[in-house]
Design a binder for these strands. Structure first.
Lengths: 213, 213
DNA sequence: TGACACATACCAACTGGTCGGTATGCTTTC
DNA sequence: GAAAGCATACCGACCAGTTGGTATGTGTCA
């Protein structure tokens, strides 16, 4: 169980480091990655955020509404942590950047699964039929990641060419699929080694596509 | 919501087609694939199976115990439906068999996601931290599938060779990862096309591995 | 007559959400 | 500058319904 904030929130109306709303979103992301969306109660999210349900329902119309907002936040987190902050994002050569991206994802595959697996992948797995707003928000996040990645892939294709019949978007979604599937295997096995191995296959495949055309 | 049995079960003690226990397992698999494990109540499983909770708890000590048994049943279903019954399982050439396998998985990617996605992959995604027995049962099922698949892959390697540094087991788990990841993308997108595309990448990769060594 | 496979009634805890209230900050008016 | 009114952020109690599970009863069969 993720450690929860047992102490009271800071005094009201004084903006804390991260407001209640932001802390609720962060708590939701952490708890859903740990145990899934349905098993995560509103009360539990509130405890982790250090507020009560009154605050929760002041900011969010429903548990579902929080989930949708959290999916949007997850897109922002990915944009910052994967596509902006790492040094490899500034490699000039797009193919090197793509391989750097995959190496980066590889290096993330360490420690407990809830620390490296995907919030929206986890949530849509169980909620896709129960809530169309949640499904659509997760899909939008996955799409945003893939389209962002496809930019680098297209640049690499423009310079190096790629195996016949492969598009940038197609390969970007395939990379997404491999990562999400690797996460499931790591969760089942309790060991990220199995996920790293699959991402090594992914890297090998990408290299093959760009060097044998 | 999957259509449930509104009418009463057949008269007591008359063995129906599939006993209560088997119907409960089938109902659990169907409902969990539709909406995940935590959102699936014992009552809901009973309604789908046409029995009451008395029957449920006569056969299973707990909801968790049913989940573990259902994971075992899923392994058996995969063994029959994927590794035994299809015609391609009787192709003599192991590489052709492997590619037949992938084509078969490709052909399954049609219709609503709950009809082609993986029961144990879905369940472990959200339950891996909440129940170690469920996690282990799902892992065993995923392992059984991969090790079964690795048999064909090893035979193909023996005849044709494979790219350096690739093992049969490693490739088998990678195939598992791609399939599970493709399922998530299909659930999010609401369209299996995106999953088929990823499995096409998988097939291309497997062909590359066996023909460029 | 006892074992088995159920059905029914019930239980305590939990759930998502509501509600009346409190504390504080901001704006307007005097 | 003070007071009043309003808005905001949040608290904690409460609600109806649901939940996993338990206890007991019933019918059938060997």
């Amino acid at each position: 169980m993720p450690p929860s904030r047992a102490t009271k929130a800071p005094p009201r109306q004084v903006p804390a480091a991260g407001s209640a709303r932001e802390r609720l979103i962060a708590a939701a992301i952490a708890t859903v990655r740990y145990k899934g969306f349905s098993a995560t109660s509103v009360d539990e999210i509130c405890q982790a955020a250090g507020v009560t349900k009154g605050a929760f329902f002041h900011h969010f119309a429903s548990k579902e509404a929080l989930a949708v907002e959290a999916a949007g936040a997850w897109t922002e987190i990915a944009e910052q942590r994967i596509f902006t902050q790492p040094d490899w994002t500034r490699i000039p050569d797009p193919l090197e950047r793509l391989l750097g991206h995959i190496d980066f994802r590889l290096s993330m595959l360490d420690g407990p699964a809830e620390d490296f697996t995907c919030f929206v992948g986890t949530m849509v797995q169980e909620s896709y039929n129960s809530s169309d707003p949640i499904r659509a928000a997760c899909d939008a996040s996955l799409h945003a990641y893939a389209l962002r990645l496809a930019e680098d892939i297209q640049q690499a294709i423009d310079i190096y060419g790629i195996a016949s019949g492969v598009s940038a978007v197609s390969l970007a979604f395939h990379i997404q699929a491999v990562l999400q599937g690797a996460f499931i295997l790591a969760k089942a096995n309790g060991n990220p080694v199995i996920a790293r191995d699959s991402v090594m296959h992914l890297k090998r495949y990408v290299v093959m596509l760009f060097t044998q055309n």
